[in-house]
């Protein structure tokens, strides 16, 4: 019965592909209702209980775990949370900006903290050598059957093909970045050329992203179809009808 309900709900949501209809509307509202209900449950059981309540009042000692003390200052968060509810007041709605301001302040401070952590290593990784260190071979030779020393020797060299790829890589990063310069009036043809190229190179990247994503989306659809045809119809309903 659980599976049947799932199948009907799935078909209900799919029916929107044909057109918006009552069946879809029904399941849309069930979905929204369940999601809201579940959020209310998870709010306490997964977030507030462990992160707020238990810390505020502490926990008793249990087998194998020491008691923790309660930190009463957590109670201050209640009035701050309540301030948000002034948003509906015509006169005092500004007070709702305080909790929002705190959340935004915390977020902004963290940006300052993480910016270099996130992008520093990426800048470093972009600095790839663009001239080969050896001309013995234009491309990376086959590593079949080499001794470890020979292998590390091959790996420590930059071959022509790698240098070209590195150059293309750096060129893409730089031209894409320069495409997003907004405040410089571009007059030189060369810079305009780089910007246009940036846009074209971006499109290659976007095409590749598109391709990789398609696999996942189709897999999820196949999974649904498997659920409907195999799990429900073939293994569920069919044996029941044929009385097996």
């Amino acid at each position: 019965m659980r599976i049947t309900a799932g199948v009907i709900a799935t078909i209900g949501l799919y029916s929107v592909l044909w057109k918006e209809n009552k069946f879809y509307r029904f399941f849309e509202h069930v979905f929204l209702g369940l999601a809201a209900g579940w959020t209310m449950v998870a709010l306490w059981t997964e977030t507030l209980k462990a992160n707020w309540w238990d810390k505020m009042v502490g926990t008793p000692a249990e087998t194998g775990a020491a008691a923790t003390n309660g930190m009463f200052a957590y109670a201050l968060l209640i009035p701050f949370g309540l301030m948000g509810y002034f948003v509906f007041s015509k006169k005092h709605n500004w007070i709702s900006r305080i909790p929002i301001g705190i959340i935004l302040g915390l977020w902004s401070g963290q940006q300052v903290q993480v910016w270099w952590n996130t992008y520093g290593p990426q800048i470093d990784a972009t600095l790839k050598p663009i001239l080969p260190t050896t001309w013995d071979s234009l491309i990376v030779p086959s590593t079949n059957g080499l001794t470890p020393e020979q292998l590390s020797q091959v790996q420590s060299q930059i071959y022509f093909s790698q240098a070209v790829n590195n150059f293309l890589f750096t060129l893409t990063v730089v031209s894409v970045l320069s495409y997003f310069l907004f405040s410089f009036e571009v007059k030189s043809k060369a810079v305009k050329g780089i910007n246009t190229m940036g846009r074209y190179l971006l499109m290659i990247g976007f095409g590749a992203i598109f391709g990789s994503t398609v696999m996942m989306r189709f897999t999820l659809l196949i999974d649904r179809m498997h659920f409907i045809w195999i799990e429900w119809l073939r293994d569920g309903v069919f044996p029941m009808i044929s009385g097996r």
């Binding site: 600095l127 790839k128 050598p129 663009i130 001239l131 260190t133 730089v174 405040s183």
Partner: peptide
């Protein structure tokens, strides 16, 4: 922001050239 982007571009160009010659 644009100044910063320009700085990153210069850093990449300069760093790439420097690395290329150092690694030889």
């Amino acid at each position: 922001q644009d100044w910063s982007k320009l700085m990153i571009i210069l850093m990449i160009v300069f760093g790439t050239i420097l690395n290329t010659f150092e690694i030889q």
